[in-house]
């Protein structure tokens, strides 16, 4: 081989001593029949290795059917990545809202939400709110009060009724 001569010529130029030494045996010895035993030992070990049916797409040859790709690792890796992306999006969209998002809600939307979820609020929350002031400013017509009492008389206990009257 030409490059072997090139290596020897280069070395002769750099160090004649090393060039001469390169021709001599290096002195390393291997046990007798080592390579035969090694082959057999390795073949025994690989027989115990789990069998893999996956085929890399880059190794697909023309003789392999088109559907071999369906069993490739890349396809499974792609599907797994897509699933991870979906889960991440789910958690991102379902994160609890923060103050900034609340500031973007209009007062009409807030009123509508409260009216529909009134049962979920504790009454004490209203004590500090402006709503209480607004309620005090409302002027109730006496006929409306009577009508309300008539409609809800069965649901009011005696103490509440006494307080209202």
């Amino acid at each position: 081989m030409e490059y072997k001569k090139e290596i020897q010529d280069e070395l002769s130029e750099l160090s004649p001593l090393l060039a001469k030494m390169r021709q001599e045996p290096a002195g390393f010895i291997v046990p007798e029949n080592y390579f035969d035993y090694l082959s057999e030992s390795i073949m025994e070990q690989v027989k115990l290795e789990p069998k893999s049916d996956f085929v890399e797409p880059s190794n697909l040859s023309v003789s392999q059917p088109w559907y071999a790709f369906l069993f490739s690792r890349s396809l499974f890796a792609g599907l797994a990545s897509f699933a991870v992306l979906l889960v991440a999006m789910f958690f991102l969209l379902n994160q609890p809202s923060n103050g900034n998002e609340l500031a973007e809600i209009s007062s009409e939307e807030a009123e509508y939400y409260i009216a529909n979820h009134l049962d979920e609020f504790e009454l004490t929350l209203f004590l500090d709110s402006d709503l209480l002031g607004e309620i005090n400013e409302i002027e109730f017509d006496e006929n409306e009060i009577n009508q309300f009492l008539e409609d809800n008389i069965d649901e009011l206990d005696a103490a509440t009724l006494e307080q209202l009257l």
């Binding site: 090393l18 030494m21 001599e24 045996p25 290096a26 002195g27 390393f28 010895i29 291997v30 046990p31």
Partner: peptide
Amino acid sequence: DEYFDGAQAQIKL
């Protein structure tokens, strides 16, 4: 090493 039988020069190398 029983599996090394080099000349002195090879050991030096």
